[in-house]
Every structure is written in structure tokens, then in C-alpha cells.
Design a protein around this nucleic acid. Structure first.
Lengths: 107, 107
DNA sequence: TGTATAAATGAACAACTGTTCATAAGTTTG
DNA sequence: CAAACTTATGAACAGTTGTTCATTTATACA
């Protein structure tokens, strides 16, 4: 029972807990490159580092840092397949957030 | 022409421009205290610094830094009324973003 | 004018972030 | 095994963020 003042429709209530989860997602995603990564992986299911590097035109090392950071935070997962390592979305919420924002007309 | 693979409904495409605007909003808001501020001001229209300070239990100076930062970035506005200074939301998009996130069931 | 109250400001600092560069580690193939 | 390729890692560093503390500015009011 996480609060709930029950304000009819469109109830705008984030518990502290929710608030922190949101903040976490936002913070770890709020970066052009990382948003782009999420977008790519939202439509591709899995991509190798070089794939992403080429599509996004981001240098290998830098990209790798972003990817492993996002993996560490539980947003992405990865598995090796031969020479390549494929990344995929793990925390689906992130897509929903970006999705939500993408469809916002006000931007 | 910013790509566009035309993925039927719920097309998930942020232009670089949009992406940066989203990142901006997210970054400047992704902090528990600031999210809380947005929430408060979404339901109260305007509040003095002490009001906010008490409701959120955040020390004056720190809060002031947050507030003026948010004002500087165009998210809030403020005006004096006697001894007090009242803050209000200026960039309504931010509310929508938080709103959107608040209603997300997945959190 | 002096005191109290409200809020802003600025210095200082630790912590975190983004980036680059050089290097290492795992994998495939000849 | 060596060479080529793919990705990770770690040091270094600049820039940003969050926070605290002390001080200042602005207003009200006795």
C-alpha cells in the first residue's frame, strides 16, 4: 500500500520508491547516445557492438563504456556469439518510457 | 529526413532534436527532490520556498539551489510577493513527462 | 532604525559522468 | 601458433552535480 490519495482519474502520485525508480531510469538513460541505443534495441531485439557503433557512428571504446554501464545497471543484457557480443534490452520499462516520450505531442 | 522505417502504429522515432530535448528534460528532472518539486507544483500552481521546504523536508539553501537551477533551465518561474517568493511550473511538458511516468503501470 | 523572516548566492568540495587513449582479452581462421 | 578481428578495461582528465556552510540581500514590521 504505497500511499494513494485516490484522486479520481489520472492520479498523479509517485511514491518515494517509484520516484526513485523513475529517477534511476531517467538518469541512466538521459543521454543522446543511450537513448539512441534504447531506440535501436527496441526495434532490433539484439545487435552487436559493431552494428550499433556503425549505426550510431559512435567510437568503439566509448560505446562499449555506455553499453557495459547500461548492462551493469540492468538495462541491457549481452551474450557472446562467436566473435561478436550481442546486446539486447533487458529492462523493458525503459522502452516504455522512451516510447511514451516519443509519442508525446508536446515535444 | 531522419530515417523512418515506418513501423505501422506506435511509431517509435525521436529525431536527434527531439532526443536532445527529451534528454534535457530528463536530466534536469531526474532527481528525487526535483521530481517531488514538480509533483508539488503540478497540484498547487504556486508555492513559496518555505512551503516546499517544509513539505519536502529539504533544507533551505539546498532547495534554493534546486529551484534556481530549475528556473534557470526554464522549468520553473518565480515571483516575489512580500517576503516570500513563489515558484510555479513554467515548462508544462515536464509535468506531462512525470504524469506519463506516474501512470505507467510497469513501475 | 533595528530585528526578524525569507530566500539567494558563492565558495568549497566530494562524487559522478563523459570522453579519449592505449592496451588487454577472447575468438576465428589460416 | 600467429594474425586479424571484436569487444572490454583501466588510467587519466575535464566537466558537471549535489551538498554544506557562511554570508548577503530583500522585505516586513515594531
Amino acid at each position: 500500500m504505497t500511499s494513494s490519495t485516490s484522486t479520481s482519474s489520472a492520479d498523479m502520485n509517485l511514491s518515494v520508491e517509484k520516484m526513485e525508480k523513475v529517477a534511476f531510469i531517467l538518469k541512466t538513460t538521459a543521454h543522446p547516445t543511450r537513448i539512441a541505443i534504447v531506440q535501436l534495441l527496441a526495434s532490433q531485439e539484439r545487435l552487436s557492438v559493431t552494428d550499433i557503433s556503425e549505426k550510431l557512428n559512435v567510437e568503439q571504446s566509448l560505446l562499449s563504456h555506455h553499453l557495459s554501464g547500461m548492462k551493469l545497471k540492468g538495462i541491457l543484457s549481452s551474450h557472446r556469439e562467436g566473435k561478436n557480443i550481442y546486446y539486447a534490452l533487458k529492462m523493458r520499462e525503459v522502452v516504455d518510457v522512451i516510447q511514451c516520450l516519443a509519442t508525446c505531442t508536446f515535444l
